[in-house]
Amino acid sequence: MNTNRLSDTLARALNDQMTNEAHNAQIYLSYAAWASDKGYDGIANFLFRHSNEERNHMMKFLEYILKRGGKVVVTEIPAPGPDPLSVNDCFERIFQSEVENTTRIYGIVDMSLAEKDWATWNFMQWFVKEQTEEETMALDLLAKIKKAGGASADNDALYVLDNELAGTPDDATLAQDTSVENP
């Protein structure tokens, strides 16, 4: 008896996204190692935590594919690419990576809607919200870096930013979570 509840197209897309989440984890890991090497331990800590978060996302896709009776296909993870040129460059690249990931997530949502696979559509809604958080987090960090001087930030400003990121929460506040009492 066939217990697979995923179309071949959706199974392929979900497996590809699982690999993409692993790739994103490698990007964060690589950038964290770069930041640590440059003496930015707070930034490194923040990026190491986000690398773990991306690995958790990968596992969510893996488990979902298994629970829907699909076949998990583990493939090669692309290299994360070259080291950032600066803290500003690091977070610009992170923002771009998150935007690209959002586009991929939306593609799977569209596909599940077109196929009327409501279970997958529902599963993907968590990732839609998560990507909103990830993009908001990256934009907030870019705004802080811009205030610190952007690509021209001096060591004093980067020292303050590094210390602040060591204790920055992993989740951003989303627009739908705000109110008059809690802006």
Rank of each mutant, 00 (worst) to 15 (best):
N2F: 14
N2H: 01
T3N: 03
N4P: 01
N4T: 04
L6M: 05
L6A: 01
D8Q: 13
L10M: 02
A11Q: 07
A11M: 08
R12W: 15
A13G: 06
N15T: 01
D16Y: 10
Q17R: 12
T19V: 06
T19G: 06
A22D: 10
I27F: 11
I27R: 00
Y28G: 00
S30H: 12
Y31R: 03
A32R: 01
A33D: 05
A33Q: 10
W34Q: 07
D37K: 11
K38L: 06
K38E: 13
G39C: 00
Y40I: 14
Y40W: 02
D41R: 15
A44S: 07
A44N: 07
N45K: 14
F46E: 03
F46Q: 02
F48S: 01
F48D: 01
R49H: 14
S51F: 15
E53R: 02
E54Y: 14
E54R: 08
R55F: 09
R55Q: 08
R55W: 13
H57P: 00
H57Q: 12
H57W: 11
K60Y: 00
L62K: 03
E63F: 06
Y64L: 04
V73F: 07
V74G: 05
I77K: 07
P78C: 06
G81M: 08
P84M: 04
P84K: 09
S86C: 05
S86V: 09
D89F: 03
C90Q: 05
C90M: 05
R93A: 01
I94G: 09
F95G: 02
S97A: 05
E98H: 09
E98P: 05
E98V: 08
T103G: 05
I105A: 00
D110T: 07
D110N: 11
M111C: 06
S112P: 05
S112Y: 03
S112R: 06
L113I: 10
L113D: 15
L113T: 15
A114M: 11
W118G: 02
W118K: 00
W118R: 05
A119Q: 10
W121Q: 15
W121R: 13
Q125V: 09
Q125R: 09
Q125E: 11
W126I: 04
F127P: 00
T132K: 04
E134M: 10
E134V: 01
E135S: 13
E135D: 13
L141P: 07
A143Q: 11
K147N: 15
A148W: 03
A148V: 02
A148R: 05
G149F: 02
G149M: 08
G149K: 04
G150S: 01
A153R: 14
A157V: 09
Y159G: 12
V160Y: 08
N163M: 12
N163A: 14
E164A: 13
L165E: 06
A166W: 09
A166C: 14
G167W: 15
D171V: 15
D171K: 15
D171R: 12
L174C: 12
L174H: 11
Q176N: 03
Q176F: 14
S179A: 06
S179H: 09
